[in-house]
Amino acid sequence: MAWYDEDSWLTAAFAPNIATIAVTLLLALVLPFLVHAFIYRAQSPAALPTFLLIGPSGAGKTAFLTLTECNTPANTHTSTAPLAIDALLPDAHPPSSASFRSAGDPAYERARRFLLLDTPGHGKLRRLALAQLTSAANIRAIIFVVDASSVADEAGLNDAADYLHDVLLSLQKRYTGAKTSKGPKEIPVLVAANKLDVFTALPPHVVKVSLERAITDVRKSRAKGLKDSGAALGGTDDGLDDERECLGEGGEGPFEFRQMEEVGTTVDVQGGNVLGGDGSDVDKWWAWIAEQL
């Protein structure tokens, strides 16, 4: 049976068969949809780089987010849910990846866009924010907002240090736990000392030193603290997670943000204020964001 025989498949394909017609029709109708779906999926815009806003409650995260979005800070209250917005870097800060392009260039406009993700800072809701940190694939950088006037007292400082410790620790875990030898892309952290307009606020370099000191304490007491109940209760838990990890170089001596560079995280401390008598001053933060873009 050659291909030109009368009952070969090719002949049948050209003959006016019901089946042939049906198949052709089906193909003709469905194919465009498939092609459309394929093309549009492929072309869906590359996800924007995400900047995660994290930090204790009342630090001014939401205020900064609204400032970035509409150039004036809105009134805010304690957040209970995360919020993501499409933000645009102000003109004064050209993103580093497109610094040679001129304004108006579409590539420049694209580079200016980023996603700002605000998280609630209340103690009971931090777990969700930390989960974001490990799960969201596209996190470019983390902005840890802290109220520079509240770190002046012990309780506020400890709270902030605790949280920052957890954030840095999960970044370290992410780095050391990575499968590839090259290590995952690094995630820089900006410690944004907010509310510098307030009279009691500590200057940024003092904020840095006190946070480092407090994190040293946190690290020390975490190392000595009790194991948690995971393995003891469940028995079947992923035992690996239980292995305690220490932040920084083996957890010895005083902690410095510099130590984080070894695990692919640079930590910067910059001051600013979202609100304040003579307007807001967050240029340093935007400049930092521009550097990361």
Partner: peptide, 27 residues
């Protein structure tokens, strides 16, 4: 997510009043 969309103030009330409502009741 904590953003005030609209407000009308007749007599100013400290922000902490509503903050503590959110903390105590919602969180």
């Amino acid at each position: 997510s904590g953003v005030v969309l609209w407000s009308r103030t007749y007599v100013p009330v400290g922000a902490n009043v509503i903050d503590s409502l959110i903390r105590d009741v919602f969180i």
